[in-house]
């Protein structure tokens, strides 16, 4: 016993391991319970966020150069397609405006001030990504001072990409929907089929090999098929209704024919994301 503790290196290693395990336990508790991390962690993150911008701006320039070269190759085809879409867009926009106005009038008549759909978009730049294969997290350049709160949904590209898990003063961490952990918050989603019937469920996992989201907890027998659109349902919390999640790729039923498992192709861009929109519910 005496000899064991007289070995200085062993003591240092033991103390190191115990300290790290203690810190790990503490941070799990803090992460799950509190809305904001401890002051010292916030301060450290804000300083690191500032320093990170010094490095990320020049690297961003290089990255943008590489991306634009690869995009240049497909520009012509893309331009043709986009021209057609722009014409269609103008028509859709006018129709949307008319419908939106009508919706507003009808809601004020029905005395519905805020519905589940309303949200305030907060746009933020992405300043870093966790350099780890099993923590799919982004650090975005806006925090508490811009009105961001924990658990707000985050969008990029066409649809939902994740949620805010940690809020500091000037930056926040976003957990992507591809992060399939025990502690991940599951989004409440719904599918509306061609007949207008709605199926509710939640995101239960992520298939890393196929790059597909899994939707589970479905208990109705309403038929849904490939190509149906999936959106957030707005039930049970801070996520607004109607955020685009993705389209259905395949469905399968379990052995009892009750609960379906549905695979969804995510609409949001989970690769290189430079700008995200945080949806703050009004």
């Amino acid at each position: 016993m005496h000899r064991f503790f007289s070995n200085r290196r062993l003591v240092i290693i033991a103390v190191g391991i115990i300290t790290c395990l203690g810190l790990l336990t503490l941070s799990v508790t803090v992460r799950n319970r509190r809305n904001t991390p401890p002051i010292i962690q916030q301060f450290g993150n804000d300083v690191a966020g500032f320093a990170d911008r010094v490095v990320s701006v020049p690297v961003g320039g290089v990255g943008a150069g590489v991306n634009s070269i690869s995009q240049l190759l497909s520009t012509y085809d893309e331009n043709q397609k986009l021209k057609q879409q722009v014409d269609q867009m103008a028509q859709d926009k006018v129709r949307l405006q008319t419908t939106e106005n009508e919706n507003k009038e009808l809601r004020s008549e029905a005395k519905l001030n805020n519905s589940l759909i309303d949200y305030q978009p907060i746009t933020a730049g992405v300043i870093a990504r966790t350099p780890s294969a099993w923590q799919n997290q982004l650090v975005i350049g806006k925090g508490k001072t811009s009105g961001i709160k924990k658990n707000m949904p985050v969008l990029a590209g066409k649809g939902l990409i994740g949620r805010v898990i940690e809020v500091n003063q000037t930056n926040s961490k976003v957990e992507l929907i591809s992060d399939d952990t025990d502690t991940a918050n599951r989004f409440a989603i719904q599918v509306t089929n061609a007949g207008g019937e709605t199926v509710n469920g939640i995101v239960t996992g992520y298939d890393k090999d196929k790059n597909l989201l899994e939707m589970g907890q479905i208990t109705t027998k309403v038929a849904i098929k490939k190509g149906d659109k999936v959106t957030t349902s707005g039930l049970g919390g801070i996520t607004p209704k109607g955020l685009f999640v993705g389209t259905i790729v395949s469905t399968s039923s379990d052995d009892y024919g009750l609960a379906n498992k549905v695979y969804i192709k995510p609409a949001g861009n989970l690769g290189t994301v430079n700008v995200v929109t945080v949806a703050a519910k009004q």
């Binding site: 810190l23 790990l24 941070s27 962690q41 993150n45 870093a128 923590q135 997290q137 650090v139």
Partner: peptide, 10 residues
């Protein structure tokens, strides 16, 4: 730990 991971002690 602070900036990227969010868990202390890794």
């Amino acid at each position: 730990d602070l900036f990227y991971s969010g868990y202390w002690g890794v």
